[in-house]
Amino acid sequence: MLANAPIGVIDSGVGGLTVAKEIMRLLPNEKVLYIGDNARCPYGPRSQSEVRKYTWQMARALMNKNIKLLVIACNTATAATLDSLQKSLPIPVIGVIFPGARAAMKVSVTKEIAVLGTEGTVRSGAYENALKSLVSSCHIVQLACPKFVPLVESDEYEGEFARKMVRDTLGQLDSKSFDTAILGCTHYPLLQTFIEEKFGPSVTVLSSASETAKDVENHLRFQRMLADAKHPPVHEFYTSGSTAIFGTIIEKWLEIDNPIIHILKFPQT
């Protein structure tokens, strides 16, 4: 496989752009192919079998485009599908849950951790397993925040409505009981300012994006597959839904003018 083959990134919608952004920052020579399954987002309330089916559809679509590495930039999809993809695909597959857990343990002093996630991620126990594999004595509190993903997908994550929703959702957590909060959904970093405002300065709020990008770099460097492109890569984006909001968020979040966006239709059965 050629070193200049692209990296594939998949997500239930726009949330994985937070991971793609860190990959692009850390590895500026790498071309990224991104799929957001916006038409079937959110994944959090769906059954594991549905999530696995949809994630495999996205993975196959990118394998047909000859990617060299796949990033599951969705916590719900990582929890449901990482193991099967890693066992079945002939390329490295990286999820976002273990990097997020590792990042939290690096910064937490008390090892008291809050995990904010989708219903599917919280239900899976994947973060609890990952965190306890690193520090078995850590204490974890988890909260499903099902309203956050639709808020981000609708491009309404910056105003007073979003601030109030974050404040109301997180009100049931006692921020004095933990010193670190993991944004256990890649959509949530777009609400990070409001989350930090609610928890206050005593809590470190972090996502898995930068740690995941480091894992990507380490895999490619170890395999001697880092791109040596002579010109800046042109990234490509695919969506199963509307290109309008998808394109707006790409332009704002990734600062890419006139991004290349394709519509991708998946089988309904």
Rank of each mutant, 00 (worst) to 15 (best):
K230T: 15
R167K: 13
T81A: 14
A114V: 04
I261P: 08
E251R: 05
D228Q: 12
F199N: 00
V205G: 04
G100H: 11
C41A: 14
A5P: 01
A130Y: 12
T18R: 02
Y54G: 04
R123T: 00
Q223V: 02
A39R: 13
L33S: 07
G247V: 03
E119R: 13
V9Y: 06
L116G: 02
A39V: 11
T269D: 15
V216F: 11
L220Q: 13
V135G: 00
K53C: 13
T269G: 15
K132T: 06
Y43A: 04
F178E: 05
V205N: 01
V115I: 12
T204F: 07
V122E: 00
T55M: 09
A144S: 15
E156P: 02
N64T: 10
P90F: 01
D215L: 10
E156H: 05
H231Q: 12
Y238T: 03
G247S: 15
C138F: 10
L33K: 07
F194Q: 02
F246P: 13
I35K: 11
K164E: 13
K230C: 08
K198F: 10
I245L: 12
V9T: 03
T169I: 01
I256C: 04
E128P: 04
S208A: 13
F222V: 07
G171V: 01
N218H: 07
I261C: 09
A227R: 10
L70Q: 04
S47A: 07
Y43G: 06
T81I: 05
V234C: 12
R60W: 01
L2K: 15
S88T: 14
T78M: 03
I195P: 09
A79F: 03
K265G: 04
G125R: 02
E160A: 10
M105C: 14
G95H: 12
R221K: 15
F222C: 02
Y34I: 10
F222P: 00
R52L: 15
P232E: 04
A103D: 08
K106G: 03
L27E: 11
G13V: 03
N75V: 00
T248Y: 08
M58S: 06
R123D: 03
L33N: 09
S240A: 04
T243F: 11
M63K: 11
V122G: 03
H219K: 09
F194P: 02
S202P: 05
K87Q: 15
V152I: 10
V51W: 03
T169R: 01
P45N: 10
K65H: 14
T110N: 11
E50G: 02
G200A: 12
M1E: 08
T121A: 01
L89K: 01
Q48R: 12
G125T: 00
T76A: 01
V149I: 11
E30V: 00
P259D: 06
G117V: 03
R123H: 07
G184D: 04
V51M: 05
V93D: 03
V234N: 13
R46D: 09
Y157E: 11
R46H: 08
V109E: 12
P92C: 04
Q268P: 01
S202G: 09
K147P: 13
Y43R: 05
T193N: 13
T76F: 06
Y157N: 05
P259E: 09
Q142A: 09
D215P: 06
I7P: 09
L27Q: 10
G8Y: 11
Q172E: 14
A209Y: 08
L17Y: 02
I91C: 00
S84W: 05
N29H: 08
T186G: 08
S210F: 10
Q142C: 09
V107R: 13
C41D: 10
I182V: 13
A229K: 11
H187Q: 09
